[in-house]
Design a protein around this nucleic acid. Structure first.
Length: 632
RNA sequence: GCCGCUGUAGCUCAGAGGUAGAGCAGCUGUUUCGUAAACAGCAGGUCGUGGGUUCAAUUCCCACCGGCGGCUCCA
């Protein structure tokens, strides 16, 4: 697949913490079509429904929004010359952007929070009304950002809210007073471009957290701590899975243990390729720039590619390192004649891809420059389209289920601003994708503008163990490359036809998937993936020989087993294995040696008692071969 | 790329304008032990890199390079 996450997939790459199951999708500032505008300005305030009678999510939305105002009030008190821009409610809280004479420090946040609490204590009424644009321009004459916002509003009037001496241009949706804010905490300050455009000035964004009560705020902070403990960068080091080094930014070094995981996943997907009728290929890493010009990537994403010229600059050849497999696969398809009888042709490839992601966006394994995907492209006839889409999500659902990720949530990404092809075809393709989902008895939600530049797509999202949502798999319709590469097949009628092309990935980038999966499991990998499946722990030196025999017996069954021969006491060895999250610890002493057995402890800490070796290996082999994902 | 923060031993972190410390990990020795840390010793750092200020810089300043948090949620 060609999902270029540097652009269209950005939102999906970021974990969105969704701790509040009752939260509406649009609540967190993700505008959803059809969502009622939250609280229009209410001129006659008293006629409105009482704040306390509103639905909980509306109350929270308003609390967060009002908190943003109270924050702006505090900042403007501190910096009377300050300019304020926008301050919406977001996931977990709110923010406000400012243009200030100096940079805010962590100490400032403490002071600001104190001022905010004073404002809350004063419990000032918040008034909202519609005013003429003319008047708004007068009120905000010293506020360039507000003036710019006013110009962007189509109506003749604009929303105007105030409490105490603070006033703001605002669409509304507020609490009745500043005393109704709930539990909040200023979180951090970060840079943000005015209107998110890097050509605009950089503003200072103050983020705050806000929940209905202290308990929920504390729960969120705990969740965050839990997330920190599971951070794949931390576990990657602690479990000796991989490391990153400035010598190759964004390019993981997979250690032996991480490589077991990596290859385990590849082997697994490869096995399923047999089941689902895919054929694997290996295409070049380096291509002449012409290929990327044909595919359109050179023009659209050249900046994000590693391009270089061989030899000297004048008569050297321009080369592009492959950032994705699709053009290579199209080139393969075009290299021979194809009959309709060969279709659908499902071409898979695991080779490495490189994308020149900007340095600031690199992040552990989830945003890298060097990675591989469980990538495939399906070339098919229009008649085969729906069953192919269906086949992909059968595949995806099976994998998510077997990996213990649960049922995916499906989203349909529609035409983005920058797109290739005919808008009419887009509408048709979006409709067909949607139908394929509903005909399969599934539901989907719309992600407007989130399609790839060459076609609409289905995204498969999963929610991890601590409630964060991640996009993994995808199916994308390509309405551009078959024509760009002039792909054809000979139909039943003896005529040449243009095949349809689908891009699809089940896990997506294996690097990114592993990052997500490490966090989901907290490093407690199912036995079949665990880099070390059991550690044999001899109680005293005289048991080492027997421990090694135990290891050999298990290795004969293809199990990955180590012996801890160190001078540590048994307790310390158990602790070590436990921290390494090894599924089984096999303690052997005099009693076990006598009985050709081992005492089995699993990583939950359960002592399963002494078991004969054959029984241990049978049990482990069963667990491995069934790819059991039971949490342990 | 841009904004902010940050960079001291493999890891977690302390420190100060006068030449660097702890715990864990490592190594060696002693201990031979029954389900989450035995004891002792040793070794380990041009304090991210390059400039500048200073009698003296790891510490102050500048630049660069990494890392971390942000950067479409438009009143």
């Amino acid at each position: 697949m060609c999902l270029w996450h540097g652009r269209s997939g950005r939102r999906g790459d970021r974990p969105m913490v969704e701790h509040d199951p009752s939260a509406r999708p649009g609540d967190a500032g993700h505008p959803e079509p059809g969502r009622p505008e939250p609280g229009q300005p209410e001129p006659g305030h008293g006629e409105d429904v009482r704040f306390k009678d509103l639905p909980p999510e509306e109350r929270l939305f308003r609390q967060r929004h009002s908190a943003a105002h109270v924050l702006a009030e505090a900042v403007l008190e501190m910096f009377p010359e300050g300019k304020y821009a926008i301050g919406p409610p977001v996931d977990n809280g709110f923010y406000y952007d400012f243009d200030l004479p100096r940079t805010l420090t962590p100490d400032d946040l403490v002071a600001l929070e104190k001022r905010m609490r004073e404002s809350v204590k004063r419990n000032l009424p918040i008034h909202g009304e519609q005013i003429a644009k003319e008047r708004a321009r007068e009120i905000f004459r010293d506020q360039p950002y507000k003036l710019e916002l006013i110009e962007g509003i189509e109506e003749d009037t604009v929303g105007y809210f105030r409490h105490g001496d603070f006033q703001d241009l605002c669409r509304g949706g507020h609490t009745e007073t500043t005393g109704q804010l709930g539990a909040f905490k200023l979180d951090r300050v970060a840079g943000a471009y005015w209107r998110g455009d890097e050509k605009n000035p950089m503003l200072q964004r103050v983020y705050g957290l806000l929940f209905p009560n202290k308990q929920e705020l504390a729960a969120y902070l705990e969740l965050r701590e839990e997330a920190e403990k599971r951070d794949h960068r931390r576990l990657g080091r602690e479990l000796d899975l991989f490391h990153l080094d400035p010598i190759a930014p964004g390019s993981p070094f997979w250690h032996p243990k991480g490589t077991v995981l990596y290859n385990g996943l590849v082997d697994y997907i490869r096995e399923l390729y047999e089941v689902y009728g895919y054929r694997e290929v290996i295409t070049p890493q380096l291509f002449g720039a012409d290929l990327w010009k044909t595919s359109g990537h050179y023009q659209n994403f050249g900046e994000d590619m590693f391009l270089f010229t061989t030899g000297d600059a004048e008569d050297g050849e321009e080369i592009g390192v492959k950032p994705m497999n699709c053009p290579g696969h199209c080139h393969y398809f075009a290299s021979g004649h194809h009959s309709y009888r060969e279709l659908p042709l499902r071409l898979a490839e695991f080779t490495r891809l490189h994308r020149n992601e900007r340095s600031g966006v690199l992040h552990g394994l989830t945003r890298v420059r060097s990675f591989a995907q469980d990538d495939a492209h399906i070339f098919c006839t229009p008649e085969q389209f729906e069953s192919e889409v269906f086949g992909v999500f059968t595949f995806i659902e099976r994998v998510y289920d077997e990996l213990g990720l649960g049922a995916p949530e499906i989203r349909l990404g529609t035409r983005p601003e920058k797109f290739a092809g005919d808008p009419g075809d887009w509408v048709e393709a979006e409709r067909l994708l949607g139908e394929a989902v509903t005909n399969a008895g599934k539901t989907f939600t719309l992600s407007p503008g989130e399609g790839a530049f060459y076609g609409p797509k289905l995204e498969f999202h999963f929610k991890d163990a601590i409630g964060r949502s991640w996009q993994l798999g995808t199916v994308q319709v390509d309405m551009s490359m078959p024509a760009s590469f002039d792909l054809t097949y000979v139909g039943e009628d003896g005529q040449e036809h243009r095949p349809l092309m689908l891009h699809r990935a089940v896990l997506g980038s294996l690097e990114r998937f592993l990052g997500v999966y490490i966090e989901h499991t907290g490093g407690h990998f199912p036995l079949w993936l665990a880099p070390v499946q059991a550690v044999v722990i001899p109680i005293a030196d005289r048991h080492v020989d027997y421990a090694q025999r135990v290891r050999s017996r298990l290795r004969e069954r293809g199990l990955r087993v180590e012996v801890d021969e160190g001078a540590d006491r048994m307790g310390a060895k158990i602790r070590k294995a436990q921290l390494q999250k090894v599924p089984y610890m096999l303690v052997v002493g005099d009693r076990e040696e006598e009985a050709e057995a081992a005492s089995v402890r699993d990583r939950t800490g359960d002592d399963l008692g002494a078991m004969p070796l054959f029984q241990i290996s049978d049990r482990m082999v069963d667990e491995r071969d069934s790819r059991s994902v039971q949490a342990r």
